[in-house]
Design a protein around this nucleic acid. Structure first.
Lengths: 359, 359
DNA sequence: TTGTAAGCGTTATCAT
DNA sequence: ATGATAACGCTTACAA
């Protein structure tokens, strides 16, 4: 690998001069600058980041600590981070905790169990060590599901921001707005004339579930719709939970005309449960998702859902991290980005539901 | 940040000794080793990789150059890479070309257009520069679709292996076995008694399409099944292509009893086309996918498909890269990993198809 | 067994 | 405007 010395010799100048033209730190004569640049080109010189970092104590490297890179959300978040990083000439170090391969289910409590295991803790330690050893200027922690992850990392003195996750301490977090997202969905259902709107909730101990429940309730009230406890089903975000709970809902003496599912996965389950019952969606019953998985465009019929602003979250987290690194005060400790609404085919205007005839 | 000097002072030894106990390069007295380790613990010392790398000329860093991190395949591949890397104490630098956000379609020719744009080439240059500046020991290039990407990168003197992509030069490539995967699918269809098996092919200029077509044809011959040109449809791997082509197939005077789709996305389209025609899957017609997208478990009915060995490919690519870095001769230049078969609900035993009555 | 010192490729401070 | 040189934190001879 060619070094600054090679370039200096080739251009017939000192290494200090080469450094000056490359970093524009000092005035150099235009013609020597040209000679240096020619030498750089000729020798294909790329400055050694390690030497530079050693000297300047700034690596222009940030670390990503992802709980699971193959989670549906991670790709888009990293995409957002990367774009902002590239625009600001930062490189990224990636570490991966691979939680999903280790847990059988997505349930909140299962994660807690996982986090207790020695294997997981060793993995966290190793990843963090890797990042700290590289002297990254900052770290972004990406969760697989918004939840309190404040107990996972030990304390260290590098700036960190949490995305798609949060802590109960005063760390910087960027997430989406559960409350607003839920309102988006239920508002739409109400506008379509639905009065009997059931809820497929995520796990009961999740803050996300609570916030969305608030959005559901508030919108119900706003439209003077009755809150029926029997319309609330709790699951663990997964397909099977949606299927099972939807079946229960359909067996009610007065079944709902619309279902708001807190995850697309549960919505798929609900959709298939309805289809298995020969119900037509959305003619007989409407289904509304939440997450905006790529696949939701391909269900039959295509799922109307709430889109998470994943890429924007990634971008915002990187932006926030850079602010912290540069000692600029970011706007807020906890940043919430709005969800958007994706209208497709599973929600229709409420008509007197055909299937109530069965009861 | 605490340095080796701080540790040395705390332990009352020289920096050389600290280095020796940390790297086990030289014999040190057991009790001094203990003192050093205590100091390391107390000061929370993490060796500076940059200083280390500067000296040793080895960074124990590899670079990932991903065409698009949010492509369905990238997460699992990176997962595989990461696991192997972690086991061998390598860190990873991630660069992202974000091709999918820049092209409107997945068609092969569109990629070629993209690759010509100045914006893309600048991006490639920047990413490669980042990796080379970090003096990574090697690079893994991850494509978004297996195709020849040999023209994208300029030449440089760091070992590289291509995964989910290949080059026409003598680079190391690791991919899955298209031929074997296609045989898996068609063999199964034939075993289920299907004699009229249509093919939803990917783009005609793709090597993957060709190889799978070979697998299709060979299996047909093996089972003495006629090859009918009117059963071959070409698309661009996407949902809409599957839908459109399936409609054409169903309109044939003698429609197929089974469809082998070269991508899960096209299989979703075919499935929905059948459903829209009130056809029952798999009673009236069977559909077989290829890719093994996570979502295929949630279609209605769940899609029988061929599973790509994504994580294994990631793992193998990292393994191969390490061999090259350590100047050990890897087994082969072009590594093909076998696909596996995921039997779900969209393929059934062939019965005299009901819908032929329509014709 | 342990300490000393040179050198890795930069940047930055001085001289010139 | 340019050059010489120290320093960044580490490894690695070599000396003690």
């Amino acid at each position: 690998m060619t070094t600054i010395h090679d370039v200096a010799k080739q251009a017939g100048v000192s290494i200090g001069t080469v450094s000056n033209v490359l970093n524009k730190t000092n005035k150099v004569a235009p013609d020597t600058a040209v000679r240096v640049m020619e030498a750089v080109q000729a020798l294909n010189y790329v400055p050694n980041t390690m030497a530079k970092g050693l000297k300047t104590k700034k690596t222009r490297n940030i670390g990503i600590l992802a709980e699971d890179i193959s989670a549906f959300s991670s790709g888009d978040i990293i995409n957002g981070i990367w774009k902002y990083a590239e625009e600001h000439d930062y490189a990224v170090n990636l570490c991966n905790l691979i939680v999903n391969n280790r847990v059988s289910s997505v349930s909140g409590s299962i994660y807690q169990e996982l986090e207790q295991t020695a294997s997981f803790q060793k993995s966290v330690e190793k990843s963090l060590g890797l990042l700290l050893a590289s002297r990254v200027d900052g770290i972004i922690y990406i969760g697989v599901h918004p939840r309190d992850v404040g107990h996972i990392l030990p304390s260290f003195d590098v700036p960190i921001v949490y995305v798609y996750s949060y802590t109960s301490k005063d760390d910087y977090c960027v997430n989406y707005d559960d409350f607003q997202g839920a309102k988006l969905a239920v508002e739409y259902l109400a506008e379509m004339g639905h009065k009997r709107i059931a809820l497929l909730s995520g796990s009961i101990d999740s803050v996300a579930s609570h916030k969305r429940l608030m959005g559901y309730q508030e919108t119900l009230m706003k439209h003077h719709l009755a809150f029926r406890p029997e319309y609330i089903c709790t699951g663990n975000w997964l397909y099977e939970d949606g299927y099972r709970n939807c079946v229960r809902l359909l067996d009610l003496s007065e079944p709902p005309t619309a279902i708001f599912s807190m995850s697309d996965l549960m919505a798929y389950g609900a959709l298939n449960a309805c289809l298995d019952r020969q119900l037509r969606v959305p003619e007989d019953i409407s289904i509304h998702g939440f997450d905006g998985l790529e696949h939701s465009a391909y269900t039959h019929p295509a799922l109307t859902t709430v889109q998470l602003p994943l890429q924007e979250m990634g971008r915002k987290s990187m932006e926030t991290l850079l602010h912290v690194i540069n000692h600029e005060q970011p706007d807020s400790r906890s940043i919430l980005l709005p969800c958007s609404h994706v209208v497709r085919k599973t929600v229709g205007k409420c008509s007197s539901p055909i299937y109530t005839a069965h009861h």
